[in-house]
Computed example of a mutant assay.
Amino acid sequence: MMNIDCVILLASADVCGLYSNQKLDNTDRKRLHQHPELEQRTDWQSSRFLKQQLADPYSIYSLTHKKGHAGLIATSTTQDAIGIDIEYAQKRNFLELAQLFCTENEQAWLVQQADLSTAFYQLWTLKEAFIKVSRGQLADMHRWCLVPQGYNAIHIPAHNPPVKAYSCVIDKNWHISVIYPSSFYISPQCCTSAFGHWQYCQFNWHQWPINPDV
Rank of each mutant, 00 (worst) to 15 (best):
H197Y: 07
Y180I: 03
N26A: 13
T118L: 14
P36R: 08
S182R: 13
G68C: 10
A55Y: 00
K132A: 02
Q149Y: 10
I170F: 11
Q207H: 11
P162H: 15
I4V: 08
E37L: 14
S167F: 08
L9R: 09
Q45C: 13
L123G: 00
D140E: 06
C16T: 11
D56L: 14
L110C: 04
I179T: 03
Q79E: 10
I154E: 06
L63I: 10
E128K: 11
D25V: 02
L38T: 02
Y180T: 07
V15E: 00
K91Y: 07
N152F: 05
P57R: 04
D56R: 15
A70W: 01
F184H: 13
F120Y: 10
P212C: 02
Q107C: 09
Q40M: 14
A158N: 12
L123T: 00
T78C: 02
L54Q: 03
L54P: 02
S183H: 15
F184Y: 09
Q53G: 03
A153W: 04
Y151L: 15
T77I: 11
Q113Y: 09
Q34I: 04
L24A: 06
K66A: 00
F130A: 01
D85P: 15
Q122C: 15
P188K: 05
V133F: 06
V133H: 10
P181R: 05
K127Y: 12
W124K: 00
K23H: 12
F49T: 00
Y61R: 12
T125Y: 12
A89N: 13
S193P: 06
Q40D: 15
A55L: 08
D171R: 15
N204H: 13
L63F: 15
N26P: 09
Y61K: 07
S47Q: 05
N26H: 10
R29I: 03
D80H: 10
D171E: 12
Y88L: 06
Q137V: 08
A194Q: 01
T75G: 02
H69F: 07
N160H: 12
A139V: 11
L9C: 05
N105P: 00
S62Y: 03
R48Y: 00
W205C: 01
I210Y: 07
P181T: 10
L10C: 05
T27N: 05
D140L: 09
M1I: 10
S62D: 10
M141I: 07
K66E: 08
R48T: 02
N211A: 09
E106S: 07
K164P: 01
L123K: 00
F130V: 09
D5Q: 14
D43M: 03
L38S: 01
P157N: 06
I186W: 00
T192K: 01
I156T: 02
S183Q: 10
S59M: 09
Q199E: 08
L123H: 02
V169A: 04
Y185C: 11
A139M: 14
P157A: 06
S59E: 05
E96R: 12
G68D: 14
A13V: 04
M2Q: 07
P181K: 04
D140R: 06
Q79H: 15
A153Q: 09
Y180W: 08
R41T: 12
D80Q: 14
P161R: 05
Q53Y: 01
Q34F: 11
H33S: 09
H65M: 06
Y121I: 08
V7P: 04
R41H: 15
Q137I: 11
Q22S: 13
L97H: 02
E104T: 07
L100F: 14
P209Q: 08
W208D: 01
N152R: 05
G71L: 03
Y61C: 08
